[in-house]
Simulated scan of single mutants.
Amino acid sequence: MPRKVIKLGIKISFIIASIAIASIVKTVAFADETPPPIFGDVSISPKFLPDPFQVRGMSGGSLPGNQVVAKRETSTGACTGFVDQKPDHQLELGKKFDYLKLQVDSPEDTTLIISGPGGTWCNDDFDGKNPGIVGEWLPGTYQIWIGSYNRDEYFPYTLKITEAK
Rank of each mutant, 00 (worst) to 15 (best):
M58T: 06
K101F: 10
T76Y: 04
A20M: 12
F97Y: 12
K26H: 15
K129Y: 03
E153G: 02
I114A: 04
L63W: 06
G135S: 10
Y99S: 12
D88I: 05
L102R: 02
T120K: 02
I144W: 06
A17S: 15
M58P: 00
I144H: 06
S148G: 09
T80L: 15
F48H: 09
I16L: 15
P52Q: 08
D105Q: 10
M58R: 08
Y157R: 02
M58C: 04
V55G: 00
E92H: 10
G119H: 08
P87F: 04
S18R: 07
C79W: 01
W137H: 03
D88Q: 06
I15R: 04
I146A: 02
S75E: 11
L100F: 08
E92P: 02
Q103F: 03
F14R: 08
P107S: 05
I133S: 01
D51P: 09
T111M: 02
K26S: 15
A29C: 12
I146L: 03
P156A: 07
P52E: 07
I113A: 07
D51H: 05
Q85R: 14
V5Y: 13
F48R: 06
E163L: 09
A22H: 11
I19S: 07
A78K: 14
L93P: 05
E136W: 07
D105P: 00
K96D: 12
P2Q: 11
E136M: 09
S115F: 02
G128A: 01
L8D: 11
W137I: 07
I19Q: 08
A29P: 10
L102F: 06
W145M: 12
S23I: 15
D124F: 00
K7T: 12
S23V: 15
K129F: 02
G128W: 00
F48W: 07
R3T: 15
P35A: 13
G135C: 10
K129L: 05
I38M: 11
L112G: 03
L93A: 04
A70L: 13
N130Q: 04
S18L: 14
R56I: 00
K26Y: 15
G94C: 10
S59K: 00
K26I: 14
G118M: 04
L49P: 06
V69D: 00
E33S: 13
G94R: 07
G81V: 02
D41W: 04
F39E: 11
T34P: 07
P87D: 07
Q67M: 10
S75V: 08
Y142L: 05
A31W: 12
P52D: 06
A70Q: 13
L91T: 05
I16F: 09
N130K: 00
Y157D: 02
W137G: 10
E108I: 00
D51G: 06
G118H: 03
I16N: 10
P64K: 08
F53W: 08
D41P: 01
Q143A: 13
S43R: 12
I113R: 03
I21Y: 09
T74L: 04
L159Q: 03
I21P: 11
M1E: 12
T110N: 06
T110S: 13
I16A: 13
R3E: 14
I21T: 13
P117S: 03
N130Y: 01
I38P: 02
S18F: 13
G94F: 10
G61F: 00
G128K: 01
P46I: 02
Q67L: 14
A20P: 08
A29Y: 15
V42Y: 02
D88H: 09
P50R: 09
T120R: 00
T141E: 10
A164Y: 09
F48K: 09
